[in-house]
Design a protein around this nucleic acid. Structure first.
Lengths: 191, 191
DNA sequence: TAACTGATTCGAAATATATCTAATTAGATA
DNA sequence: TATCTAATTAGATATATTTCGAATCAGTTA
């Protein structure tokens, strides 16, 4: 799905801990030694060391040794870059959900009222949106008789024959030996 | 420190889990029912329910019931807003080294005037800053008699005895057989 | 009403994570 | 070289989280 799913997960896991988040907070101010951090957040040094190792593993830290003091510094650009990549517009679909996409919603607002399809859109593109919404009324994995398909469609529009044919045409429903079932989205024809 | 430390932590914790991140991924495409999600990621429904509850608690989801099917939808604006607030420029200091200096400068502005130390800070942390400034008046590699150490300190404050002792205490100066010399920063005690 | 379906709640068990002490390493000092 | 200090590693234990089966709840259908 995501090529860097694991990286994202690791990044989030590294930050999603009270003490580590505290450490990151302290390191945004300035570089710090292990002792210093341990004193500031009230943990023993080995524990802090363990947390630092985790943060380091995902590339959030930079360490320089001066004598036997190890100075840890936050790689702020890394956090920002990762944060952007995880929470950026490209990654997160701002218009979530099939029938919830803004475009779709506008179409649906125009054509649907109280769950009733007022009119079947003439344009291919708009009809597709409406059909997608209608296909959502069928459960995946379940088989329906033609009668029950009609019944379900008629909850939303009187012309179940046309709409049923359209659903088949766009491959949102599939028919075989008189039974109908919902097709996965991957099988649909594009609008 | 941070007023919304807890909110940030909760948000990160909610996302920092393999299955939940997967769920979020699936929900970016479209709304889904609990069953659907369970089937898609290979978990039992109670488990998915539990994860959904966690995501919901931090405001990432929106649920609408149709009959006894519960549709979960991602509140993408929420994720983006939270992501921005956590990883935004304001929050993360891109240049942590700078900040250290800024803090120091403020202290020095308060305690030093025309090269004169007006007062020895009582707080450890602030005293450390001032002593660091004072240690800078000594050249590295050079050896000083106690008299010349006092003389240098007295250019900046009358109480050379106390300050000399402090410099030794913080290991910024070192003494041996009556001679003093400046220590490298790595040897200093932390404030 | 009874039976059914999807979702949720409740514990218990399994798993993962965080924390500590003790031991070890590496650099600095005597 | 022996000693000191800061950091790290290792191993043990405590704590938190995840997962599931069983029971329950809420809507739908017969």
């Amino acid at each position: 799905m995501e090529p860097d799913f694991d990286a994202t997960l690791a990044f989030l896991k590294a930050l999603a801990n009270e003490q580590r988040l505290r450490i990151v907070g302290l390191l945004t101010e300035r570089r710090r030694s292990v002792q210093e951090l341990a004193a500031l957040i009230g943990l023993k040094e080995p524990t802090v060391c363990h947390h630092l190792a985790l943060l380091n593993k995902v590339g959030l830290l930079e360490m320089t040794a001066e004598g036997n003091i190890h100075w840890y510094r936050l790689r702020a650009e890394q956090i920002l870059a990762l944060g952007r990549s995880v929470f950026g517009q490209e990654r997160i679909n701002i218009d979530p959900g099939m029938d919830e996409k803004r475009w779709d919603r506008r179409i649906l607002e125009n054509f649907v009222e109280d769950g009733q399809l007022k009119q079947i859109p003439a344009s291919r593109k708009k009809r597709w949106v409406v059909l997608r919404w209608l296909a959502d009324k069928f459960k995946t994995g379940e088989h329906y008789s033609e009668a029950s398909v009609n019944k379900i469609i008629q909850k939303h529009h009187w012309d179940s024959a046309t709409l049923r044919r359209e659903l088949i045409g766009y491959r949102m429903l599939k028919r075989q030996r008189g039974m109908y079932w919902r097709q996965p989205e991957s099988a649909w024809l594009q609008a």
